[in-house]
């Protein structure tokens, strides 16, 4: 859990899987916070000697789908190339995004996340920004 008020995440109780509530002032920040939450659940430590950068372009049909597609892309890079990213810059236009990812090879990972689910996935618009609850299959 982070201490920040404007943006952050907190883990919620879920019997079988892992769920987090994520909040941020705007949509790109919500995506970045969601990625941080996912990496925290996975217990990832980076090998700072093996830094990498990636750029990805993704598209979806709505905001919730784009969130799932983005996190699923990070999971794919995690599993196939053993990479995770601690600096993420996003440009979002409609339901398309470009992501500049800076990170490193993974030194340690405590937990396998199988997938990002759509279970009750709904980005809520609040006066102070956006909020979403994400359930990960573990």
């Amino acid at each position: 859990m982070t201490d920040e008020k404007e943006l952050g995440f907190i883990e919620l109780q879920h019997t079988a899987d892992r769920a987090v509530r994520v909040w941020a002032p705007d949509y790109p920040a919500l995506l970045i916070q969601s990625a941080r939450a996912m990496y925290e659940i996975a217990g990832i430590l980076l090998d700072q000697d093996c830094k990498v950068e990636r750029m990805v372009e993704l598209a979806a049909s709505d905001d919730e789908s784009l969130l799932v597609v983005f996190l699923s892309e990070l999971l794919f890079l995690q599993e196939t190339e053993n990479l995770a990213f601690n600096k993420i810059r996003l440009r979002v236009s409609g339901f398309e995004l470009q992501a500049w990812l800076s990170g490193a090879k993974i030194k340690e990972q405590a937990k396998e996340i199988k997938a990002v689910t759509y279970h009750n996935l709904n980005i809520n618009r609040l006066p102070q920004g956006l909020e979403v609850t994400i359930v990960f299959d573990v």
Partner: peptide, 8 residues
């Protein structure tokens, strides 16, 4: 028990 979508 509670899953995602379907119950387990």
């Amino acid at each position: 028990h509670q899953g995602y979508g379907f119950p387990i």
